[in-house]
């Protein structure tokens, strides 16, 4: 239970993918102008993160390490993620056109999202600081991926709310667009920085 709480706190608050690790910034800045699209993107990323972990972690641990081909991990992982995203897109299109309408347009963007490759690379690395005395296994890996994705979604939604409000103000030309979005992001990061004072 302690490990579970530590993983949740770390993945969502203290080591949030956007505010602490700066993974997945492209969608964070690109798709955060409206709350609905930000939420859609967040959920899609979470889904792909969980599925990718579910596939890459066992392949790495049970296939690549015994065969001593760990050095091919980048090619394997990016290929798995790309195929997964393609498959997911086709399946959602067939099964639920409504869901596809809400989420489908974000899926192709996810292949080149650092957050997905980042979480798979992170989970095969050294996680002992978060896990405490528990040892890494597929269950913890998936839980970490899930909550990291939810943390990502949380920050996306906060950001989109702030940017919707920003639309009401006129900003000088040089600052409008990315610069003002980044200054907004700076404030979110500062707020999340406080969470790093939590001792887990």
């Amino acid at each position: 239970m302690g490990t579970f709480i530590a993983i949740v706190l770390s993945a969502v608050l203290t080591n949030n993918f956007i505010t602490a690790k700066t993974y997945g910034i492209c969608p964070f800045l690109g798709v955060s102008k409206k709350t609905s699209s930000a939420a859609g993107m967040g959920i899609a990323v979470t889904l792909v993160m969980v599925l990718a972990t579910l596939v890459t972690y066992p392949i790495y641990t049970y296939v690549m390490v015994p065969l001593k081909i760990e050095f091919l991990e980048i090619i394997f992982f990016i290929f798995i993620i790309a195929s997964l995203v393609q498959m997911l897109e086709k399946i959602i299109q067939k099964v639920s056109p409504t869901l596809y309408g809400a989420m489908g347009i974000y899926l192709p963007l996810i292949t080149t999202n650092c957050a997905v490759l980042g979480v798979t690379e992170l989970l095969i690395g050294d996680m002992s600081a978060i896990l405490g005395n528990a040892s890494m296994n597929i269950g913890w890996a998936v839980i970490y991926a899930l909550f990291a994705g939810l943390g990502f979604t949380l920050v996306m939604i906060i950001m989109s709310g702030m940017r919707e409000k920003l639309n009401y103000y006129k900003t000088p030309k040089a600052i409008s667009g990315f610069p003002i979005a980044m200054v907004t992001a700076c404030f979110i990061c500062m707020a999340f920085y406080v969470f790093s004072l939590i001792s887990i």
Binding site: A174, P179, C186
Partner: peptide, 25 residues
């Protein structure tokens, strides 16, 4: 110290873009 955290990185990056765009314009 804040400028060495992700928050500071966002701030500096945003301001650098603004200055760069302003000069080019």
């Amino acid at each position: 110290g804040m400028l060495a955290t992700p928050a500071g990185a966002f701030l500096v990056y945003g301001l650098c873009i603004a200055v760069f765009v302003y000069i080019i314009d």
